[in-house]
Design a protein around this nucleic acid. Structure first.
Lengths: 129, 129
DNA sequence: TATAGTACGCACCTTTTGGTAACCATAATT
DNA sequence: AATTATGGTTACCAAAAGGTGCGTACTATA
C-alpha cells in the first residue's frame, strides 16, 4: 500500500509516477465500466435495473462492483429506501458531478470524432451508417 | 485488443450502445497506457527511450504496441529519421492534440482531487502496478 | 574486443478481468 | 401455487492483458 507523505503539502500528485495514488486512480477509473457508469448518472438518480438497461452489455456483477467502488471514492451516493422488495437509487456526489463533466467532455469528443478515429483503420469496416 | 463489431447498426455514435464504434474506441483508449502516452506527448516530440523514462512502469512491448495503435487511429505521427542506429520521434497529430486537451483535463483533475478520492477508501487498490 | 544504446519483433507464461450461473429474501401478480 | 420483480452475493472458469526474456542489426565508445 502506498505511504502518503507525512507532510501533505509536499505530496506532488503525478500520474506519470507509477507509485502515485493519482496514477492508480487514473488506471482504475479508466477501466471498462467506471467512465460509463459516471456518464450514465449525469442528470438523474437511477435504479440498479435502469442502469443495467442504459449501459448496454454490463453484467449485474460488474455494475454492483463498479457502483461500490465509486461509492468508496466519494463519487457516488447509494440511497437505500429500505423497502421490501428493495428499492435503491444511485446519484453522483458533488465531487462525482465535477468529474462527470470531464468524462462527458471526453465521451462526446470520441462520439463526435468517431469517423476520423476509425478512418484508415484496417480492422474497421468503412460502410458504417 | 478490442475488436470493433462487424455488425454495424445504423445508430448515431453513442458510447452506451455496446456495438457502436464510439463505445469500442472509449473502452480501448481508456486502457492502461493510451491516456498516459497521449498525455506524455503533450508539448513536444519524444523518442522511444524518452517516453519509457517519462511513463514510469511501461514496458517496451506495451509502449510500442500503444504507439502503433494510436498511429492507426490518426492520433500519433511516427517520424523515422532513417538513420543507423535508429532515431524515431513521435508527435501528436492535430486530432491527437485535440483529444489530448480533454485527457489532460481529466488527468489534472484526478491529481488535484487525489486526496478527496482516496479518503475513507478501502476498495481501490492503491498499490496497483 | 567487449559493452552499451537505439528501436523494435516474437514466444512464452502469469496475472487480471469479467462473464455465467446459481443462490438469497420478500411481495405482488397471474 | 407458481412466477416475476426487486437488488443483490458468491464460486467457478475462460479469455484477455500484459510482463519477461530473447533475438535482430548496426554504431559508438572504452
Amino acid at each position: 500500500m502506498y505511504e502518503l507523505p507525512k507532510d501533505r503539502t509536499k505530496a506532488q500528485p503525478n500520474v506519470f509516477n507509477a507509485k502515485c495514488p493519482a496514477r492508480c486512480l487514473l488506471t482504475f477509473l479508466a477501466g471498462k465500466w467506471h467512465l460509463l457508469v459516471i456518464d450514465a448518472l449525469a442528470k438523474e438518480r437511477w435504479r440498479n435495473g435502469e442502469l443495467m438497461r442504459k449501459i448496454e452489455g454490463i453484467s449485474q456483477k460488474m455494475l454492483t462492483q463498479t457502483l461500490r467502488e465509486l461509492e468508496n471514492m466519494n463519487l457516488v451516493l447509494r440511497i437505500d429506501m429500505g423497502t421490501v422488495p428493495p428499492h435503491v437509487e444511485y446519484e453522483l456526489t458533488p465531487l462525482g458531478q465535477d468529474l462527470r463533466m470531464k468524462i462527458c467532455t471526453l465521451d462526446r469528443w470520441i462520439e463526435d470524432n468517431m469517423f476520423e478515429l476509425i478512418r484508415d483503420n484496417d480492422s474497421v469496416p468503412l460502410d458504417y451508417v
